[in-house]
Nucleic acid binder design. Structure first.
Lengths: 335, 335
DNA sequence: CTGAAAGCGCTTACAG
DNA sequence: CTGAAAGCGCTTACAG
């Protein structure tokens, strides 16, 4: 069933049917009604590929997630982001194409994607400080928005969580409880999340004029195992509180603290980052920083559509605020 | 840059360029080389919508996940399935369109999807015993495969984990350790996973000629909280072992057992199902059933492509085996 | 308000 | 082995 046949059945031309399908006001009420009647009766759905070819727009956007680096498996946030993007797309009548990019074949595939005319734009979610795919996209002319943080001063459109501010809030929470000997298990500095969260830690200490002690800073890889290992390095320094740059690392730290015969929060206060569901189940439940992942997905879609509709508009850069969720893993400092 | 221009630059006709692009053998080696040269120089990528319109195939498949019921948020398995599907699609030169179906607007949207000619087929992942979307797809003529279990005797193509066998293995493990008073926290019976896993529990007890005791069976909703609650109901029955139909419920049960002042596995043995990453971190680490989710995604894609290429082939129904992962939450029964 | 016609960029019998 | 031509199913100036 195609336009031609609907036209025949309604006794009008293809052009007219096309107009009523596309809500063109230049159709008489009567004609519109009778065409619509036939359309409904026939359960007619326009051929999307034909339409795309004629119009030059497909109404599909790509969600690109470079994996291997971002380790989709261990990232409990991924699903929420995807859902945010998906919901927003539905709301805008767009469909989303999911591409889990394999770092090995990136270059070639991204090129295909960019010039195949299959998609109107791309949302790329990369935690890397300077992702190769983002580089490639920057040099093309396909609209795209980054979920993550581009290099400072970059003029590309992006949406991100305000990791720095979130970390700052978390550490300030510890400072307000009187802690001064605050350690951090930092994330990998190859990821912007790692960099920003560490910067927030620095910022909070600076605000309270606490000297930065390098022996209280140790890097982890965002995993539970690395959190455990990092905490073991930290224990001899006798920190009164620890800010872990991810909940998974905080859980590892919790385990290390317990294995050392110490208690949270009585001996050491602990704050995480992410608010993964799991952290309400630990004993004690973890104080952490909640991220508006769903919102990030929505804003990313809004931004991209704006870019598609107005290719020459200025880049949009959005930072979404986090929320400190206070549970029971922190307590007043004992001096 | 389009076929026409490539043709002009190479000094041949559009037809010929099209043939070399599509690897048609009816092209002289010389012509092929010179055309390919121009194609590479110009970084030419064929317009996918134009090609789709001409050929009647898009090479995109939809991955449909009805959410709200399947609660993508709380399902740690979702990501792995998506990745399996995505990888397999890349390997086959297909792209995947992700549609997180909103139960409210199902009917209309699925109809659009089915007749828009945008996709060649769909993989639908639904845990429901009798999903409405699956019903609708059955009555259309778009190739689709279900990830999950259709009603018995159905002739639709599907791929699923052998949940029954997995549960059977898990309970047999307890039986072999001498347990006879084995309780189960069953999943919701509206989901095929819930139904199958309970059937496996029954089957194992039957195999060992242990009488089914209804007071040892209580339903949960696959969540940690419901596992906790269910275990509280079970405690007064003094079970020697518990098979929880999901790891999350097992974690809830573990918490309930602890809160009651009992120990795992000394007082109660515990087995879960899913093998989510988390269960290696608990104390004791959980014995559970591992699912080949990645494989499910791959087989689903293979099956769908087969169906697309041979629309009249017989339905393919695949059950993938699970693996019992023995850790430290089970012990010999004390009589 | 409506229709005839050109065009979007491909593929593929058909003829040679 | 190659090219001219028709066709895939839409949209959209253009003319009326």
């Amino acid at each position: 069933m195609n336009l031609e046949q609907i036209a025949k059945l309604s006794g009008v031309s293809r052009s007219t049917v096309s107009r009523v399908i596309n809500n063109d006001p230049n159709v008489s009420a009567f004609t519109r009604q009778s065409v619509l009647h036939v359309v409904n009766l026939a359960h007619y759905v326009p051929n999307a590929t034909a339409r795309s070819l004629a119009v030059g727009r497909t109404h599909v956007i790509a969600l690109v997630v470079p994996i291997g680096v971002s380790t989709i498996f261990t990232d409990p946030n991924f699903c929420t982001l995807v859902q945010g993007v998906s919901n927003a797309c539905s709301a805008h009548g767009r469909t989303v194409m999911l591409w889990l990019a394999d770092p090995d074949h990136e270059g070639d595939q991204i090129h295909q994607l960019m010039y195949s005319h299959l998609i109107d734009g791309v949302i790329i979610a990369s935690p890397l400080v300077n992702d190769a795919l983002v580089q490639i996209l920057s040099h093309g002319n396909l609209p795209f928005v980054l979920v993550g943080r581009p290099p400072a001063g970059s003029s590309i459109s992006y949406v991100d969580i305000d990791h720095g501010r979130g970390a700052h809030d978390a550490v300030r929470h510890l400072l307000r409880q009187g802690h001064r000997r605050i350690a951090t298990i930092a994330g990998p500095q190859t990821m912007s999340t790692g960099v920003e969260r560490l910067a927030g830690y620095h910022g909070a200490l600076r605000e309270y004029e606490v000297r930065i002690d390098p022996t209280l800073i140790v890097d982890g890889g965002f995993t539970e195992a690395e959190g455990y290992w990092a905490m073991q390095q930290l224990l001899p320094q006798r920190p009164g509180a620890v800010f872990a740059a991810s909940d998974l690392m905080a859980l590892g730290a919790l385990r290390a603290i317990r294995d050392a015969g110490l208690r949270v929060p009585q001996d050491i206060s602990l704050v995480g980052f992410d608010d993964i569901p799991l952290v309400t189940l630990t004993d004690p439940a973890l104080t952490t920083v909640r991220q508006p992942l769903h919102g990030v997905g929505r804003v990313a879609v809004d931004t991209l559509i704006e870019l598609i509709d107005h290719p020459h508009s200025a880049p949009r850069q959005t930072l979404l605020p986090t929320e400190l969720v206070v549970r029971s893993s922190c307590g007043e400092a004992i001096h």
